[in-house]
Computed example of a mutant assay.
Amino acid sequence: MTSTEITQEERTELEKALYDALNPLASAIRSRESGLPEARMWAADPVDVTLSVLAAWKVVDAEVKRLTAVAAATAGSYGASYEQMGAVWGITRQGARKKWPDAVTRPATAEAPTGATLKLFGGVAELVQDPSSGGWTWAAEGADKTRGGAEEDIWYATKEEAAAHAGAFLREHAADLS
């Protein structure tokens, strides 16, 4: 795996993007707390303004942690190990297992897989391989209880392709992404 260190230019661009995303959130929080219009946020008492910014960063921090857990679960669903996730995150295998306890599931048997379960966004998809053609299909139930699957007679060349379609369905039918 390549290094995840970023250049100063990349850091500057990231900071700009984060501030661009944060400012509307901080303004909305400040407006709700003060009853003032969002446009007047920066004219308020500096302590109140900076506390609104801090509150917005707390919201962003919680969302980053949630999305990180989703990314770990996705990596695990594609076969990444805790050792690999730990290496990427800069922690041990045990640390990764503790941080994302449900990200990696162990196969029930040692036989060659003919199916797989994908758990994302609160829903579940079953991926099934056709023994004769080797193609893959999927059926899923989203977190909102909507059921769906690959169209009849559609077989994907790889498990990953079927999983991508199933994952898109589960994302579309997540209970709450906000």
Rank of each mutant, 00 (worst) to 15 (best):
L67N: 07
S77N: 06
A174Y: 00
G95M: 14
H173T: 06
E9Q: 11
T7F: 03
L36A: 13
G35A: 07
L51M: 10
D144W: 01
K58A: 14
A43V: 13
P24G: 15
S132N: 13
P107G: 09
P101Y: 15
W57T: 11
P113Y: 07
A71T: 05
H165E: 10
E15W: 09
R66M: 00
L36P: 05
E172R: 05
A166C: 08
G123R: 03
E160V: 01
A75C: 03
A71V: 02
H173D: 13
P107R: 11
G135D: 15
F169N: 04
E126T: 00
G79N: 00
A108V: 15
Q94S: 10
V128G: 03
T158E: 08
A62D: 05
G76F: 08
V53F: 08
A21K: 06
A71Q: 06
E151S: 13
M85A: 01
A103Y: 08
A175M: 14
V128Y: 00
T7L: 01
A43N: 14
V59W: 05
D20M: 07
E63S: 09
K16A: 15
L14V: 05
E126K: 00
T105E: 05
M85I: 03
A43Y: 12
A166H: 10
E161K: 11
L14S: 10
A55Q: 09
L22E: 14
L67K: 07
A43S: 14
A108Y: 15
R147N: 05
R97Q: 14
W100M: 13
M1W: 11
T109D: 15
G86E: 07
H173R: 01
A174V: 06
